[in-house]
């Protein structure tokens, strides 16, 4: 700390400097406030359903580039012993789960390989594949988490078995409920993660209705919102498919 003793004229100079500094200070506060207002009042990225300010969406998309750079299929989600799994998995969200409109007997998984080229599969077809367990800490975007035990078939193995190699070279998968009320878009590297499963069992028993009977997605590298319940249709795209919560202002990537 430097201390100097000054005469009256120098003191006046310092007092003037002080005033100028305060003018700059208040100007900066004004600019900061106006920038905030500007950002806050920017048009939303989805005015029909609500959403977030367009510049924020841009940053979230930039974040996606940053974090998909961190992503590796080698990074496995921590697994727990089955005994630690919650006896009753929490149910959160029922969009696309209207039971009255859903016919369990006629359900088939629809895979759209290309326009007009679809594959229809029953639950038994899936059960013929190698079944694996995933016991992980299921994380909701709201902030809670719960250790849960799911079983099903690896999506990557399923894709190989049904010769979807070409489709899986595209950038995104779209998964939609039979009534098309709920839908998610997921980047392909996350779909091909070894712990991403087409899941038909919870705690060793068939999925309950409210957990997405007969088939749901369990994708531990994403928040719960992407773990779509009751899959009706899966298709493949290079452009981002529609995503229910992204349309409501959430990050599209939501990778953990």
């Amino acid at each position: 700390m430097k201390t100097i003793i000054v005469d009256e004229t120098t003191e006046k100079r310092f007092r003037r400097r002080s005033i100028i500094a305060f003018i700059i200070f208040f100007t900066c506060i004004g600019v900061a406030w106006m920038s905030w207002k500007w950002l806050y009042n920017q048009p939303l990225d989805n005015s029909i359903r609500g959403g977030i300010q367009k510049p924020l969406r841009k940053v979230l998309d930039m974040n996606m580039d940053v974090y998909s750079g961190l992503y590796s299929t080698q990074h496995l989600v921590k697994e727990y012993p089955k005994s630690m799994a919650a006896p009753k998995a929490r149910v959160n969200g029922n969009v696309g789960m209207d039971e009255d409109l859903f016919d369990t007997t006629s359900w088939k998984l629809t895979i759209i390989r290309a326009a007009g080229d679809t594959l229809l599969l029953t639950l038994n077809d899936l059960k013929k594949l190698h079944k694996i367990d995933v016991v992980h800490n299921f994380k909701c975007i709201e902030g809670w988490s719960q250790i849960t035990w799911w079983s099903g078939v690896r999506f990557s193995e399923f894709a190989e078995k049904y010769k979807l190699t070409k489709e899986c070279q595209m950038k995104f998968a779209s998964l939609v409920t039979p009534d098309e009320e709920y839908y998610v878009g997921i980047d392909m590297p996350s779909m091909m993660h070894p712990q991403t499963i087409l899941c038909f069992e919870l705690n060793g028993k068939p999925l309950p209705m409210d957990q997405g009977y007969p088939l749901r997605l369990i994708i531990p590298v994403k928040y719960g919102v992407k773990n779509i319940k009751r899959i009706g249709t899966i298709s493949f795209h290079n452009d981002r498919p529609a995503d229910y919560w992204a349309e409501r202002g959430y990050d599209y990537y939501t990778g953990l």
Partner: peptide, 11 residues
Amino acid sequence: RLADGMAFHFS
């Protein structure tokens, strides 16, 4: 305002 909060927080 969870979506709002996340967008601002992560920006």
